Every structure is written in structure tokens, then in C-alpha cells.
Simulated scan of single mutants.
Amino acid sequence: MQSPTSTAQGLSGSLFGAYTLPTFKFQPRRESVDWRRISALDVDRVARELDVAALQENIAGVTFCNLDREVCGRCGQPVDPVLLKVLRLAQLSIEYLLHCQDCLSTSVAQLEARLQASLGQQERGQQELGRQADELKGVREESRRRRKMISALQQLLLQTGAHSYHTCHLCDKTFMNATFLRGHIQRRHAGMVEGGKQRKQEQPVEEVLEELRAKLKWTQGELEAQREAERQRQLQEAEIIRQRETEAKKEFDEWKEKERAKLYGEIDKLKKLFWDEFKSVANQNSTLEEVPNLKDFSEFFS
């Protein structure tokens, strides 16, 4: 039989977990026994019908009553000490079980509170997940829209081509149209443009003409060089085409000669085969007079 201390430790370890049992102390017995109430109670009926309500009504009176001064109603003698000891042990056991019942009720209430808190936290987590899912969906839609926009811009840039850009001749910057280029020159290179205009105005007419002649000559030289390069390229392409045609014709002639030689070889083989066959037939029928001379057949196949 386990002691109350080991029972309390078992309950504290297995049922209560992290919950701490309140301090337990047996209460003194000061109440008197209500003999009339106990006499009116049918114990057999309570056990047969499992009348827990009747037990709850009488459990406090039985547990906390004082039996030390009780005497027998018939003989007036005090209660047997051994029987009294058994009754007191039963009272202490019931009191301890009531204490355990209170602890269990408290633990159940605390666990229910924790369960409700966990359910609330789970619901808030699900709401947060739903909100984040909606945000993620919106971000994906925005990303898809921006990708389409970037793709459209790339297609537009590819369609416009590199020649549509306008490069500043005074720096390395490029612009989408001539308006932006003129604005850039007016903002960034206004002094250089005005100085260039003044220098051009100050130059003599002869120097300007000489410069134009030099530029024209250089341009003509570039055009001649490009024409010569184009002519050389065309000549090279024509030579390559002629060589390819010659090689193709040569290969065709070689193939034709091979096929002709192959055909003649097949014809010679057939002639030899027929000649051998006729020769064999002539040897087998040499006794017959109707067989023509083999020399005639040889002349026929020669």
C-alpha cells in the first residue's frame, strides 16, 4: 500500500506536470456526528444506485466529525479504540482525496485556460497567415505587372534600335531624342558652344574652305576604299562560287565514270555467266547432232 506522500508525488508528477500542489494540512475535527441524518441514509441503496449526490451531501459531515467523545447508545461505553483508529484513517484518506480533487479541478481549469489561449493564438496565427498570403499574392501580381512592363520597354528599345539614340559630341552622354540633346547642350555646354561659334566666326573664309576641302577629300577616300573593299569581296565570292561549281562538276564526272565502269563490269559478268551456262549445256549434250558449234556461241557473246 502506498503512503500519502508517494501518492501526492505521483499525482504531482503525472497529472499536474508544471503545476505546483498547494500546501496540504489535515484539519482538526470539531463537528459532532449527525446520527439522525446518517440513520436516515440507506447505504445499500446509495451503493446500488450510485447516488453520488448523496455522497457529496454527507462527505463533509463524515470526514470532519469528531468521534473521540462518542459512546455507545445502548451500553454507554466509549467506541473501541481500534475501530476508532480505522474511522480516523478513513477520515484522513477522504480529506486527502478531497484535497486531490480540488487540485485536479484547479489543474483542469488552468489547462482549459491555456487551451483557450492556445486556440486564440492559433486563430490569430491563421489570420496572420491569411494576411501574409494576401500580401504575397499582391506582391506577385505587382511583380508580374512590372515584368510585363520591363518586357514591353525592352521590346520598344529593340524596335527603336541603336540608331535612334542621339549622342552628345561634346561628352559621352546619349539621349532618346534631339530635344533632350539640345536641352543638355544648352545646360551643360553653353559656353563651349558659344566659344566654338565665335571661333568659327573669327576663322577666315579661306581656312574654312580648306577645311571643307580636306573633309571632302577624306570622305572621297573613304568612299573609294569602301568601294574597293566591296569589289574585292564580290570578286572573292565569285571565285569561291566558281571553285565550288568546278569541284561539283568534277565530282559528278568522277561519279559518272565510276557508275559507267560499274555498269560495264556487271555486263561482263553477265556475259561470262551466260557463256559458262551455254558451255555447260553444250558439254552435257555433245552427243546430240542438233547442238550448234560452240564457236558460234562464242562469236555471239564476243
Rank of each mutant, 00 (worst) to 15 (best):
L84N: 09
L157P: 07
H169N: 10
E237Y: 05
L41H: 06
C103E: 05
S302R: 12
Q77V: 10
E95R: 09
C171S: 00
E141W: 02
G120P: 08
N58P: 01
R227K: 15
D268W: 03
G161R: 06
E141T: 11
A238G: 01
C171R: 02
T287I: 08
F278V: 13
L212T: 03
Y96I: 05
I59V: 15
Q203D: 05
F16Y: 14
Y19D: 15
K25W: 04
L104C: 06
Q122T: 05
R74C: 03
Y165I: 00
L21D: 06
R131C: 02
A60M: 07
Q203S: 10
D296H: 03
V82D: 09
F64H: 14
K215M: 09
N66E: 03
A152Y: 09
T63E: 01
D51A: 02
F297C: 10
E70N: 07
L98E: 09
R182N: 14
R244M: 07
S151P: 02
V62R: 04
A54F: 02
A8P: 02
V52I: 11
L273V: 07
R114C: 03
R231W: 00
G183M: 11
C75P: 01
L83F: 05
Y96A: 13
E135T: 14
E245S: 11
G161Y: 01
T219M: 02
L223C: 11
T7D: 11
K258P: 00
C103K: 00
T20S: 08
P292W: 06
K262L: 11
Q116F: 01
Q121E: 13
F180Q: 15
K250D: 07
R114G: 00
G125I: 01
A178Q: 10
